[in-house]
Amino acid sequence: MRAAVDAYRTMVEKDLVPESAATDNGVNFLSFTNGKIGQQSIGAFSIGSLVNDHPEINFGVTLIPGIEGGASSFAGGDNIVVTAGTPKLSAVQEFIEFAYSPEGQKILAQNGSIPTRLDIADQTLEGLDPRLQVAVDAIDVAKTPYTLLFNDLINSANSPWATFTNAAIFGDDVDGAFATAQDDMQAIIDNAAP
């Protein structure tokens, strides 16, 4: 991780990153679409958005390259949640089964979602944009961080993770950024409601 941070810092030092990146809070999540950006690390869901909504954009997709070769990715994030005590459990079950059926997977993929069932991915992607295949390859190498505090730790705009990435890449104190993120994350976990 240290090496990855250093790689990003080098990119900033060499002026390869726009000045606006330091305050990018994700409002223009898919800044690719205005055609003014060369490269963006972003979730695979955007392949579908680009294919379906921006057919005019010519783009390629690859996994995030590692420092010493190889590739990395992470998977997960969107969950189907069923509230306790719902009277419609059988309908929910039926919907989930449909969503994971070959037919359901196909419909999702056609509308820009990436396939979640690897065993039938070939069948799902048949006849669709070949770039979606990269998302399937990503699942092979992807890691899935798992926590019930995902929003507090990672996703929210003021999370230790969001703060860390900014501090580590644009700040002056990389070691401090690591230490602070570690402490803040631990504090949130410790304070979590039992």
Partner: peptide, 25 residues
């Protein structure tokens, strides 16, 4: 600034908002 850079501008009300409506405490 969304409370940034690096959470340096989180006011008390901002923190209350985050606790209540982001973390749902």
């Amino acid at each position: 600034t969304s409370g940034g850079p690096q959470n340096s501008m989180i006011s008390v009300v901002y923190y209350i908002f985050n606790q209540s409506f982001v973390s749902f405490h």
